[in-house]
Amino acid sequence: MGEGAQMGPLEQRIGRMARERLAKARIGIAGAGGLGSNIAMMLARSGVGHLVIADFDTVDESNLNRQHYAREHVGASKVDALSQQIHAVDPRVAMQAFRLRVTPQNARELFGGCDIVCEAFDDAQAKATLVEQLLSLTPGPIVVSGNGMAGIGPASEIVTRRLGSRLYVCGDGESDVDAGEVLYAPRVMLCAAQQALVAVRIVLGEE
């Protein structure tokens, strides 16, 4: 951890064992929008040591209502803006940031070495394709997908379900931007938080 035997504030808070497990974990995040940017920040704050993040997009003013970016980031690559913010919180996080579109052809190369991958796309077909792709890798990562967080429905509708041995799906499973529903920060962050939480729980052996 690069700080000798000294216990840092995070270690003091969560304990050396938890910190060591989290510091060793390698978690992928596919998409750095509303879900991915918030997941990344939460995992960094939780002490996850290695983050692999991929997104082709740049920050737009219209993203600021729910994504973890500020006005100063508008026009910047999302993965660069996110890396900068993560290192401002914890410079020890090893970031692999890829400014590119995740495709069925590069998914294995990008995320095959991860313990867990959080699917954080916005497009339904792209979500389905990536989940299928990652679960087809053997051995392959555990996949934590975000599915259904639009609108202003009650928080209790957003749940985490486990399906099979390597898939968790967080969200309400129903609300759909393609049906005209809009995205609000609280509900996007509730879904992102469930994805980040299940990832931390897996790393700490609670799942």
Binding site: G34, A124, E132
Partner: peptide, 28 residues
Amino acid sequence: EIVPRAEYDERALDEHDALEVVRFVGGG
């Protein structure tokens, strides 16, 4: 076990099968 999309039209379901379908919606 995940079923690759390319195999959807090959594999027939029998009475012992359990199929889980995750329907994805837009937003993220």
